[in-house]
């Protein structure tokens, strides 16, 4: 059983794209307000990260036809948020060099989650 390294809290903030990491390390749960929470371990600083995605008005307009607000329904179930979204470290630890206006409080890493082929195994 592999052991997760300790949270590198002294790691400098850097906007680094880590690439594709194994999605098995992340879980998608329903949030209290109807949104979705994706949680896991940051592949750069190894801190526990959790990002909440809410449902909301995206701006001026939404999907559908002109009169489709008549069939008002609950938001459709969230698709595969883990595989679809680009994730950002939100370990909530203010890493050294964290910009004051950074929208994501963490080490600055970003990654996509997917199926990572095991070296030497079948694809």
């Amino acid at each position: 059983m592999s052991q997760v390294p300790q949270h590198a809290t002294t790691l400098e903030y850097a906007e680094v794209d880590v690439g594709v990491v194994d999605r098995a390390g992340f879980v998608q749960q329903s949030a209290a307000g109807g949104g979705v929470v994706v949680a896991g371990v940051c592949p750069r600083c190894f801190g526990t990260t959790a990002t909440e995605y809410g449902f909301g008005l995206p701006g001026t307009g939404t999907k559908g036809g002109l009169f489709s607000w008549r069939r008002q329904s609950a938001p459709t179930p969230a698709p595969d948020v883990i595989g679809r979204e680009v994730h950002f470290c939100e370990c909530r630890h203010p890493h050294p060099g964290l910009p004051a206006d950074a929208p994501f409080v963490g080490c600055g890493a970003s990654w996509r989650a997917g199926v990572v082929p095991v070296a030497g195994g079948t694809p």
């Binding site: 949104g35 999907k63 948020v81």
Partner: peptide
Amino acid sequence: HGRPGQDILLGGQA
């Protein structure tokens, strides 16, 4: 002005 209706998931890619 857009159309009042369903919400979307507020994620960057969505």
